[in-house]
Design a protein around this nucleic acid. Structure first.
Lengths: 124, 124
DNA sequence: CTCTTTTTTGACCAAACAGTCAAAAATAAA
DNA sequence: TTTATTTTTGACTGTTTGGTCAAAAAAGAG
């Protein structure tokens, strides 16, 4: 019983994921997240617990679908900014790596990072 | 005339570079830099102008030598955290990419990022 | 020694930060 | 309708942030 959440969690996580990809983890502020989701801090924190919780949830959701621009972005942000100090994120990425290890995953990661930095061109 | 700087600029930049590699750009605070270099904010700012200036100087210096763990680290941080909003850094990395473009640069970048995130093992 | 220029010093600042919480509102269940 | 439970709201907090600046100290040049 009690009230139901009035927002669609997956929709919100998709928005949050796009934000993290655009600015990176540390450079994305809670004010940014509040603005882009339309939710208030209390709702975000009671749902996800912390900023890292928001990232973890967005990452997990994104990895459930097939690899796209957002999931690649979240993966490289995870490896550079989050995984080194968050075991849960490191485990998630490690799991993903195990399942997707192929001859050229490393190369694909590198290409995504080069795109992200605007060093080479790429869709969007 | 006038006083000479009493610190070795290249030594200081090497320390700063290591810090940036360890924590990333955004997660490295000026207090961190002050502590690790032994310099005070005023000296740092009168020499490098800004935090981004410190990063640019450390990156340039590191790329003058041959590729090592620090220069790889600075490059991936540059691409993910700095280049998207700093044209100078983007140009530096682009220049580096032009000079080092080989069949497997992208793969090397990907491997470095996987190492950085602790996803695969690697020296140190 | 004196003069002039430069560096060093560290206190200071406003803005931005992630996170909290008590009260109000909403609603599912009985 | 009442009650129990949940979510929403938004003001609030202490901390940390990158950056500034005037005064003091140092030292090269004459």
């Amino acid at each position: 019983m009690g009230r139901n959440k009035k927002f669609n969690q997956e929709q919100v996580l998709a928005e949050i994921g796009k934000l993290f990809v655009k600015y990176g983890f540390n450079a994305t502020s809670l004010d940014d997240i509040v603005k882009c989701t339309g939710l208030l801090r209390g709702s975000l924190y009671s749902t996800f617990g912390s900023k890292q919780g928001m990232f973890v949830s967005a990452l997990k959701l994104s990895l459930k679908g097939e690899n796209n621009q957002v999931s690649w972005g979240l993966l490289i942000i995870a490896m550079l900014e989050v995984a080194p100090r968050n075991n849960m994120v490191r485990d998630i990425v490690q799991q993903w790596y195990k399942e997707n290890k192929s001859a050229n995953v490393a190369e694909l990661i590198g290409l995504q990072l080069l795109k992200h930095g605007g060093i080479i061109e790429g869709g969007q």
